[in-house]
Structure formats: C-alpha cells, structure tokens
Design a binder for these strands. Structure first.
Length: 1089
RNA sequence: GGGCCCGUGGCGGAAUCGGCAGACGCGGCGGACUUAAAAUCCGCUUGGGAGAAAUCUCAGUGAGGGUUCGAGUCCCUCCGGGCCCA
C-alpha cells in the first residue's frame, strides 16, 4: 500500500482522492519498480526468457535530437501514441520491441562548444541525461537496456562500417542491385563488361546502342586490360556507391564554413553578412540516384500516408524523355580548337516532339564548353562579357538564378546543328539553365516553353510553332486549305467559325479536319437537309430546330470574335501567320501543353520523320524511336533526385573510415580497425581561410599517420597517409538506428542475422511514428541505406518501415494585432469575455493559433504540467486533443477534464477516505454491457490509432457508472480489474496502482506485478448488440418518428412497421407511397406524394 | 504560378461504409453541499420561432450548384486557411 500523505492543506479533501499529489506519489514508485524489475525488457531470440510462441511487433519512434532546451510538449505526443500501441500489443500477446535512442551528432552542440569551449561530447551527454530523465517521468515502456546514441563509439563504428559497404559496392544496372566491387572487377576482367569512351560501362550483348557523337559502339569500348592502372582505378571509383564528386557549394571564408542556400542572402552570409562564394569542392557523395527507380517502386508496397509518398515521388522526380546530340558547327581549320571542343552538345528533353521548334541552344555557365570557348574563342565570341557573365552566374545560388524574372544571357559565338531541321542554331550561355539537371544544356523551344520564349523575345531569336491545340490546329488547316472564293472579304470568317464550332463540340482531331470542312461547306451551301445535320452538330438532341439555330448562331458568333481578335478580318494575315509558323510569336506567349504536332516533317539522310497531326503522346514516341534508329538520340529517363552530398566540414559528426595517400588516392580503413575515433581538438572555431578547411584538419597528429597505424591493410604499413577530415552529415546515424535497436550490444555485426530476421522480418518495422518534416530527407535516405543492405544480404526486408504515421504539430493559442503581427501572450489582457487588448498600447487582439515559440511566450514545459497534474493526465490529454495526425492547439485549461476522468474512475474503485477498494457484490447489467462495449471500442480505436475516441469511450463508461452508482459501489471486483486493464495502455501508473489495490490479481486470475504482463481483456460479442434498437422513420429525408424494433428485423418488416406507425400513418393520408428505403439497424425513409 | 490537404456550436473535436449532425472534453448557465470560496456532485448548453411545460417546428457542417430516396461525407465552381514545389 502506498503511503500518501494528505495532499491538500484543506481538511475537507479526502486523504485518498486522486489528484496531482497522489499522481506524483504513485507514478515515480511504479516507474522505479518497472525499471528495477526489467518489466519492459524484451529478450532476443535465443536469450533467456524469450517466448517464441508470441508474434513480434516492432513499434518505433523517430529518435530525438537531445537539444539543450529539454523536452518539448511535441515530443511526448508521438511517444505516447507508440507507448499505448506497444503496451496494448504486449497485453494482446505480442513480443513488442520499443526502444528509445538519441540522434546526438549535430550543429547545436558544436555551436555550444564554440561559445563555451565545453566539449560537444560532455555537453551532449548532459542533454541526453536530461531527455532520458524527462522521458522516464512519462512512464514509457521502453526497453532501456537497448538504448543507443549515435555518438557512442560502439554505434558509429557500424555507421562507418555501412559507409565502407557503400564504398565497396557498385550498382549493377542490369541486375538493378548493389553488388560488391570485387564482382565488378571480376566481370571487367573476364570481358563481360567493357568501358566506353565516355566512361560508361558496356555490357557485351546487353547494352542498347549508344549515341554516334559521344558514346561509340560497344565494339569500340575498351577492355579492362587495355586500361592503364590509373584508368582502371578511375573506372572503379566512378562506380562506387560512395564516391568523391565535385559539387558547387556556398563557401564563406570569413566564417570558415559551407552554408546552406537558406543561409545566404544576396551573396552574403545571413549571420554576420560576410561575402559568400560559390566554389566547386571535392566531397564524398552517395549514389542514391542509382536507386531512383527502386525508391519509387517501393513506395507502392508500403502503408504510408499518401501525402508523404507523393512528396517522395516528386523529390525523385522521374521524367521520361530523350537525350539528343546537337553537333557543334565548329567550322575551323585549326585542329587545336577542334580538339578542345566536344563534337556535340548533348541535351535531355521531356518534349522530344518539339525538336523541330528548337531554334537555339542554351548551356549552363558551368558547362565545360564555356571554358573551352573562353580558351579558344570564335570570331563572334564576346570574350570579356562571356567571362564576366559566367563568373557572376556561378556565384549565384540555383534558386535565385531560376527565380529571376528578367532573362539574361550571352552568345558564345558557337553554333550547333538542329539534327532534324538541319538549321544552324546559335548557342547561348544563360543562368536559367543549371548544370545539375540533365547535361547542363538545353535545346530551346521558344514557342513551347515560357523561359525559352522570354529569352527568345529578349534576344530576337526565331520562334517556331510545332504544337497546336486542336482549335488552332484547325485554323492552320483551314488557312492552308481555304478555296479562293472563301478568302475574299468575309467569306472565310463564318466558314472557319462553323468549322471550329463543329470540331470542338464533337471532339474531333486533325484527321477529321478534311471531313469537317467539307461538312461545314455543304451545310453553308444548303445542300443537305437541315434537321439531322444540326442535331449532329450539337451533339445532343435539341428540343426543336429553333433552339439549334440559336445555339449555332451563338457558337459561330463566339468563334468569329476569337478569330477577329487574333487576325482582324484579314485572311491573308492568318494564312501568313500559319505559313511561317509564327502563331505563338504573334500571340506573344508560348504554349506548353499537349496538342497536335505541326511543321514537324523532315528527311534526314534518307530517313523521313513525319509528326504533323499526331497527338503529343504519339509524336513523342514516334520521334524518340526515330532518334534511336538514326543514332541521333535515344530514349532516356531523367530524375530530379541528385546524388547525396555526404561531407560536412564540421567537427561533431562521424569521421570517415578513409585515408588518402600523398598523391590523393583514397583507401578504406579495414572493418576490424573500426571505429575511427573522433579526435579531440583544441578549439572549435572554424578556420578563416580562402579554401574550405574542415575542423578536423586542426588535429594534425591524427590526420597524418601511417597505413599501419590507421588500419589500412591495402597499403604497406609504413606508407604515410592522411585521414579524411570531413565528417558525415547528421542524417548518417538516423539511417540505420532502427536496425541497431534489434541487437544493440553486438560487437561482431551491426545486427545479428537472427535478431534482424525476427524483429524486422520481411516487412520491416511494423509501425513508425514521427513528424512529417522528415517526409523526404530522413525517410528517403534511410530507405536508400536499407536497400543497399538488403542487396548485400544484411537485412531481409526490401523496405525498412512497413507502416508510417505522422503525428500532427502541437501549436498554441496566441494573439494577433490588426496588422496581422503576433503579440506575445503575456502582453494580452482580457478586458471582457473573449475580448483582448494589448497591455500598454490598448490595441485590439484576436486569438489565433500559432506555433509555440519563445518570443511569443506560449511555450509549455512538460515538467510543469506533470507537476501540476501527473504524467497519466498529461498522456491522456495529449491523446485526447484530437486526431493524432492533426495539428492542434495546446490549451492547458482543457487538461482538467482528463484529470477529472481519472479522479472519477479512481473514486468508483477506491474509497477516498480509506484508500481501500469499494466493490459491489453483484454486477449491474447495464454497466456490464457498457464495459463490454467500451473494451471493444477501445480495442478497435487503438488499432486504428484513434486514441481520442478511445478515451471518450472510457469517459462515457465512467459517466454511466457514476450515474448508476449514486453513493454505493458499482463495479464488482472482476469488473474493476477489467477496467484497470483497459486503462493500462493509456494511464499505466494509475492502472497499476488500482490493480495493486485490488489485490494484484488480474481479470484472468493471474497474480502479476504489473498489468503490462497481464492480458488484454476480452469482450462478449453478444453484449455489443441490443435485442431492440431505436431507428428513425423519415418522410422524404426528414425524421418524423422513432420506432423501436427487434435488432434483427429485416427491411420488409421495418417497412411494414413504419407504414403502420401511428405518427406516420396520418402523414401519408391522401398520398401515394412511391418508394420505401429501409436499412436494417439504421432507418426507414418513405417517399410519398 | 502548379500540386496536395483542410473549413462542423463560444473553443478542442465526434460522426469508422452515403443513413438520426454536434459523441466526449473545455468554457458558460442553473442547482446541491458550504458561513463563504475552492473542490466535488447533479442538470442544461447549435441557432431562430412557438409553448406554462413535456415538447413541437424551421434552419443549420465556409458560399453556390450538382448526383442521390437520403450528402458533413461523392462531383463541379468559388471563397478562406495550411503544407509542399516553383
């Protein structure tokens, strides 16, 4: 029995009332007991106490970054949800894996170190202790023996190990999976794979034809032994899933760090306003792009919120199109210049059907051809202007370059040949083309792309129509096919208007134009009988001919207006416009939608391509096939997804298990030499320098070592080597921590085969709950790593997280001034009911929902709430606020309602004066029935994560029992035990305390220390249905009466009862019953008039 | 600008499959207990109208339209808010 001193100074409060004091006495007691007894510890398969008969359930929280500010009320929301589900699943017979850990590398600790000199490790250990203490105060049923932190050497040793696996693997595009590099070398050595001149791997017999200009035929690809040692090394390094790549970054020399785009404002750092330069930097990259298709396909197999799947799809950004080579027209006698420039510019386009409209080309400022032209300029090249432009553009962030309204650019002096039209087209440099997408070069089709159009207008370049929507297509057709008697004066206008009306209202396509024009002409000459024709014209049967006439007149009038607005009343203007393909130039805006191809016919080297009149989708397929056959281009899928920049110039992250030799070659550290420990450094201030200098470079003794010291057996032990000084980004540890939970103390493997097979199985984590802010990055990166580990045989599930759920944001009420700015909560004063003004200024304030923030003074500290109400009340409140996925405002006032619920429930079972159980000797039938229903509802609601309604059901039970009880006991001992078990997942401390006071025997007669080890109560299906139900009788959808009928009454019986009902019968007098809809158990609806 | 999601009492929300809108909690109002207050307990609480009352009646889920015997729920247009991409 718990010793609870009278918690209230007032003598009138009973000694054993459930209140904050009682909660704060019993909760720590149970928490200590659970921890000491290891109640929530789950053994692994093969360990003592493992129960193989139970199915597994792996429920996972997104582990927190332990910030110095401590726990926020948002944290326990998701954690309470998983705790309820985990506790419920345990009681329902599962082995539940539920662990907490710490995502503990990251910038804030490093910033703290800069400010205070305190080692990030010391600081972080402290914040972890705070977080752990705060979380334990909630009574979450975590298996704390499995706790991990990403900063533990025993943990990041395996993060480094996975990096070595990425480094030591390549993506086989034919098998579509990762394989060890050794197997790649094997296939190169045995001749199955060769190396094309552009570095691509060619699989003998399996590769599609490569392009004429750049690729070369498989026959010309070189064999492995024909490569020099350096070439062999480069070939292999180009295939690794972890590779060194060059990436343009925002470098701020003054701050000594690389900045994110968001941290750069107008070329200066947000912090301190120092100049920022865009600088190419060699860094570690992870080849996530190889998995683009797998990452996309896998989304169809998981139970995730549609919104999140959609975000990932967009992020991956798959687009189908073609790549095409535009030969450069170099036209020079100087072989040196020829050699410096590539033979062609390769472009990617999602609209190959518009290639006939490609009247110029644009390359990115970073494109290698720009530097080549600057070295060996053409006669027309404006060298200084080009140099200056490229320089400036390279120092502007991609987002800003794309956002700029005014198009800028410089002519390179180069021309290329449009491969289908044979036209010589100018090549420009412009900043709206990015090096990162496609090949950093585009074919510009001004008539069908907004940015190309703007550029063409500004630089006076040709704009040529190649796609028309159907109506414009019909105009073009008529312009070319009008008879001479129609073209004079006004004869053509009504004819064309009728044709357009006919075409559009009947959804005709260009192949019908000839027929349509004939039809319209015949009609106008009055050669055909009128009625049928006009009905056909309208596409529906009009009431009479007059209507048709009016309708037709209106349509013709509208089209005449449209034509006139485009071409005036001049047929010649229209003819000329379409003959020269200048419709969009005349319109002043491009058309980027689908339609029908026009002006798109050519014969190249004896092969004819004819797209005219084809719908866009067919035109795309046709031109792509043609490009493929002629070797000018080929089908190509492109992705928006970029390879993952994996290097950071920070201190507080995982060191790379990589060393470099004097000549810059990189070598891996041996797996058994891991971890590569983070060295201590004297200070954390970034170096001020012209070149990015990672902080670890300060640890000079650590950086310069020997292969033997470093544990790199690929080199002679005496070789001098330099360690990689970048560290891994914050995402690294979070990519795989959920695997470590399954086997956290294993020092022979990141997770044992058996533990992984049991806890993850072939479906992965059963439920993952966390914020939607991680919809893309974390959840994409983790899937990528998991897929690599799957390919290499370390995990059995193709996807890591079977079911994903995002809890909503907890917001807060705040106050808005009339000018829409927000006022801190402590400045608001309530002057009347619901009326607020700002203190001092007297400005009227409107309550609004806003994010919690320190400046608004609306942040709630969980510790304070627990002190005031107890953890169980807190848990219930957060779950009761609304649907788990919804964003919802915190309102401290509402908490009292949940506290009262526990208090009332407690009072039903426990005598407030004595603390002893108060039990009825016989069960009340109504209460018993409600208890069965409550258990059923709670069970159903937990399964669908609808905790708010589950709690409402328990409150209803308590309300009913309270009403029925009056002042005498209402629950029998058995009922009380069932109630406690039902409450246990939600309010585990209160439930266990009730359980203990009820004798420590659960509802199935087991003596258990805690309800966590009890069973989820069963309910009687028979108790869920009533013998009789009250249903509504509606007359034309309005409820007119309620009837009580047997629950099993069928539709026929319901109808009979309803029609004879004394309240209904009079209402039907003099009316005919047209229809009766009877839904058993729901209602009867009578339609009568 | 494009895509997605959401608008229900004074507030948070419920209505799980197209079937009686507003469960449950907060707040408010009234009552019991109390010298009093707090706490606790009981009752009422979408709006309008009628009635002494039980109750009856009309309207009602951002606005307008549509599908349906029946729409908070499905479809279209618009307004407002949020998120993502540009």
């Amino acid at each position: 029995m718990t010793e609870t001193a009278s918690p209230n100074p007032s003598s009138t409060t009973p000694a054993h009332r459930y209140n904050a004091a009682l909660a704060n006495a019993i909760e720590p007691k149970w928490q200590k007991l659970w921890l000491d007894a290891g109640v929530h510890h789950r053994p692994n398969p093969g360990e003592r106490g493992f129960d193989a008969s139970r199915p597994k359930f792996y429920v996972l929280d997104m582990f927190p970054y332990p910030s110095g500010a401590g726990l926020h009320v948002g944290h326990p929301e998701g954690y309470t949800a998983t705790d309820i589900l985990g506790r419920y699943k345990k009681m329902a017979g599962h082995n539940v894996l539920h662990v907490m850990g710490w995502d503990a590398f990251g910038l804030p600790a490093e910033q703290h170190a800069i400010n205070t000199g305190e080692h990030p490790a010391t600081f972080t250990r402290g914040t972890i202790d705070t977080f752990r203490r705060q979380l334990q105060r909630f009574g979450f049923a975590y298996d704390w023996s499995r706790e991990v932190a990403t900063i533990d050497e025993a943990f990041y040793r395996w993060t480094q190990w996975i990096f070595l696996k990425l480094y030591g693997s390549w993506f086989d595009p034919w098998q579509k999976k990762a394989r060890p590099i050794a197997e790649l070398i094997g296939e190169l050595e045995n001749g199955d794979l060769r190396i094309a001149s552009d570095g691509e791997l060619v699989h003998v017999g399996r590769t599609a034809k490569t392009l004429n200009a750049l690729g070369g035929e498989p026959g010309t690809a070189r064999r492995w032994h024909e490569l020099s040692k350096d070439e062999q090394r480069a070939t292999i390094d180009d295939q690794r899933l972890a590779f060194v790549g060059e990436q343009t970054v925002n470098w701020c020399p003054k701050l000594g760090t690389v900045l994110a785009n968001e941290e750069v404002i107008d070329g200066r750092s947000e912090r301190g306003s120092h100049p920022v330069f865009r600088k190419p930097l060699k860094q570690w990259m992870l080849r996530i792009t190889a998995y683009a298709d797998r990452l996309l396909e896998g989304l169809e197999t998981v139970d995730w919120p549609e919104d999140t799947r959609s975000k990932q799809r967009h992020w991956i950004g798959k687009s189908e199109g073609a790549e095409v080579d535009f030969a450069l027209d170099i036209d020079t006698d100087d072989p040196e210049i020829d050699a410096d420039l590539p033979p062609a510019l390769r472009v990617f386009t999602t609209r190959p059907d518009t290639i006939f409209g490609a009247t110029f080309m644009v390359i990115a400022p970073e494109h290698p051809v720009v530097d080549a032209v600057l070295r060996t300029p053409r006669p027309q090249t404006p060298v200084e202007e080009l140099r200056a432009y490229a320089e400036k553009a390279r120092n502007t962030a991609d987002v800003d370059r794309q956002a700029a309204k005014e198009k800028t650019g410089v002519f390179t002096g180069l021309h290329a040949i449009n491969p289908v039209t044979g036209d010589r087209v100018p090549v420009y440099v412009a900043d709206y083309v990015l090096m990162g997408y496609g090949y950093g070069a585009i074919m510009a089709v001004p008539a069908h792309d907004e940015r190309d159009f703007a550029f063409a207008e500004k630089f006076g370049l040709a704009i040529r129509d190649v796609v028309y929507p159907v109506a414009i297509s019909a105009m073009a057709y008529y312009a070319a096919n009008a008879t001479s008697d129609e073209t004079g004066d006004e004869g053509w206008l009504p004819t064309l208007a009728d044709m357009l009306g006919y075409v559009t209202s009947n959804d005709l396509t260009p192949k019908d134009f000839e027929h349509a024009l004939t039809h319209v002409r015949k009609n106008r000459r009055g050669e055909k009988p009128v009625p049928e024709e006009r009905q056909e014209l309208v596409g529906a049967s009009p009431a009479d001919l007059a209507d048709t006439e009016r309708w037709r007149g209106a349509v013709r009038g509208q089209w005449i207006d449209t034509i006139e607005s485009l071409f005036g009343r001049s047929f010649e203007t229209m003819r000329e416009t379409f003959a020269s393909g200048a419709y969009y130039a005349r319109q002043g805006q491009p058309y980027d939608g689908n339609g029908y191809a026009a002006n798109s016919t050519a014969t190249v080297e004896g092969s004819t391509v004819l797209l005219d009149g084809m719908p866009t989708s067919k035109a795309k397929a046709t031109i792509t096939d043609w490009l493929d056959q002629t070797g000018i281009g080929r089908r190509r899928t492109n992705f928006k997804l970029r390879d993952w920049l994996f290097s950071r110039q920070r201190y507080w992250g995982e060191p790379f298990p990589i060393v470099f030799t004097e000549n810059g070659d990189h070598y891996p550290i041996d797996a058994d030499a891991l971890p590569v420990k983070l060295p201590d450094i004297a200070d954390y201030e970034p170096a001020v320098s012209e070149d990015p200098q990672p902080l670890l470079a300060k640890a000079t003794d650590w950086v310069r070592t020997t292969a033997g010291e470093a544990g790199c057996s690929a080199l002679d032990p005496a070789t001098v080597v330099y360690r990689e000084t970048n560290t891994m980004p914050g995402w690294a540890g979070s990519c795989w921590y959920y695997l470590r939970y399954a086997d956290p103390h294993n020092d022979a493997a990141l997770v044992s085969k058996e533990a992984q097979a049991y806890w993850l199985g072939d479906r992965g984590v059963d439920l993952y709950i966390g914020g939607s802010e991680h919809a893309v990055l974390h959840l994409l990166y983790a899937r990528f790593w998991h897929m690599v580990l799957y390919d290499l045989g370390y995990v059995d599930s193709p996807e890591p997280f079977r079911k994903l759920f995002h809890q909503g944001l907890i917001t807060a009420f705040s106050f808005q001034r009339p000018d829409k700015t927000l006022a801190p909560n402590d400045t608001a004063e309530e002057v009347a009911e619901g009326q607020y003004v700002e203190k001092g200024t007297g400005v009227k304030l409107t309550p609004v929902v806003a994010k919690m923030s320190k400046t608004l003074k609306n942040v709630v500290n969980p510790d304070d709430i627990i002190a005031e109400f107890g953890a169980d009340t807190f848990r219930l409140y957060e779950m009761y606020m609304g649907p788990l996925e919804a964003s919802k405002p915190w309102n401290t006032r509402d908490i009292m309602g949940l506290h009262r619920f526990l208090q009332r429930l407690w009072r039903l079972v426990i005598d407030e004066e004595t603390g002893e159980p108060r039990l009825a000797s016989a069960a009340d039938a109504g209460v018993d029935k409600q208890l069965h229903r409550t258990i059923a509802k709670v069970e159903n609601d937990i399964e669908r994560l609808s905790f708010n309604t589950a709690i409402a059901a328990m409150i209803e039970l308590v309300n009913l029992a309270t009403t029925k009880a009056g002042s005498v006991p209402i629950f029998t001992q058995q009922q009380a035990r069932r109630v406690a078990a039902t409450l246990a997942p939600f309010a585990p401390h209160t439930a266990d305390e009730l359980h203990e006071r009820l004798g420590g025997v659960d509802h199935v007669g087991q003596q258990v220390q805690t309800l966590y080890n009890s069973a989820w109560p069963k309910y009687d299906e028979g108790q869920l249905v009533d013998d009789e139900v009250e249903i509504a009788v509606q007359l034309a959808g309005k409820v007119k009466a309620r009837i009580t009928v047997p629950a099993d009454a069928d539709a026929k019986k319901l109808e009979a009862i309803a029609l004879e009902h004394p309240e209904i019968k009079p209402l039907l007098e003099g009316k005919t019953v047209r229809k009766v809809i009877a839904v058993p158990g729901r209602l009867v609806n009578i339609v009568a008039n």
